[in-house]
Each structure stands twice: as structure tokens, then as C-alpha cells.
């Protein structure tokens, strides 16, 4: 991802604090490069869970589709725990309709400074951290 997207994800986490922040990673279908990050409101309005605002999510996903792009992942923040998928995150990632190749970016604000990590979550619930490359 570009450094801009990385900064936008940290900003989304801080802006939402003390609630969980979230957003969508848009890129080429099935790809791993973020072309755009779209901040989405946390419909759950909670510091412990997030739910992407449905209407904003639909608009961003359909706009991406119109451009030949796709949602390739989801970012959310953890305000009190490490940047690692929780059991809830794994359960959500393995639901039907959620593509198994999505990238799950988590920004932790638990220690005052932000930490960003990205994961793949396979159909069996296996968590695989992946490196995040930054370009300028």
C-alpha cells in the first residue's frame, strides 16, 4: 500500500477513538495492492465491536465495481487489545459471502502509539499474518 493509505488507516483509528474505527481496502479484484482506502462509519458505535455502516459500505463497494476494482479487505481498530484478530474477527471472516482472500488489517491503539498489521484468515479459521509493504 502507499504510505498515504497507511496514514489514512491510522487516522481512521484515531478519529474514531474511543470507538472502534473501520474502513474498506479497495484494489484490483483478488489483488494485494491497496488502490484506495475508504473510511466507513462504525454502525455499532462501540469501543469493543464494529459493524460497517451498511449504506456507506454498499456505495463504496459498488463504486469500486464500476471502476473494475473490488473490495479486497477490511480495516478496523482495536482500542484495548493487540493488532491481532479476535475470535469475533475470525468468526466474521469465515462467514459465507465473505471472500476468503480478503486482507484483514487491524490497527491497535492499545499502547498509545498505533500498530498496524495485516492478516489472511482461511476458511478453517487459521490466522496468517502477512507483511505490509509501504511505497511513497
Amino acid at each position: 500500500m502507499d504510505r498515504l493509505h497507511w496514514l489514512q488507516m491510522l487516522a481512521a483509528a484515531w478519529d474514531a477513538y474511543p470507538l472502534e474505527g473501520c474502513g474498506l481496502l479497495i484494489g484490483a479484484p483478488g489483488g494485494g495492492r491497496v488502490e484506495r482506502f475508504v473510511t466507513i462509519d462504525n454502525e455499532a458505535g462501540s469501543s469493543r465491536i464494529y459493524r460497517l455502516d451498511g449504506n456507506q459500505y454498499a456505495r463504496a463497494a459498488l463504486d469500486a465495481d464500476d471502476e473494475g476494482l473490488d473490495v479486497i479487505g477490511v480495516m478496523h481498530s482495536h482500542t484495548h487489545t493487540a493488532a491481532y484478530p479476535s475470535p469475533t474477527d475470525v468468526a466474521e471472516a469465515t462467514k459465507p459471502l465473505v471472500p476468503p482472500d480478503w486482507h484483514w488489517v487491524i490497527v491497535s491503539l492499545a499502547w498509545g502509539f498505533p500498530e498496524l498489521h495485516s492478516f489472511r484468515i482461511d476458511a478453517g479459521g487459521g490466522i496468517h499474518e502477512e507483511p505490509v509493504g509501504l511505497s511513497i
Binding site: I49, Y50, H76, D89
Partner: peptide
Amino acid sequence: LPAVAGGQ
């Protein structure tokens, strides 16, 4: 679209 949620 799939509903997307989660949490810590």
C-alpha cells in the same frame, strides 16, 4: 453484499 462486522 455480505454484512461485515467484528471486534476485539
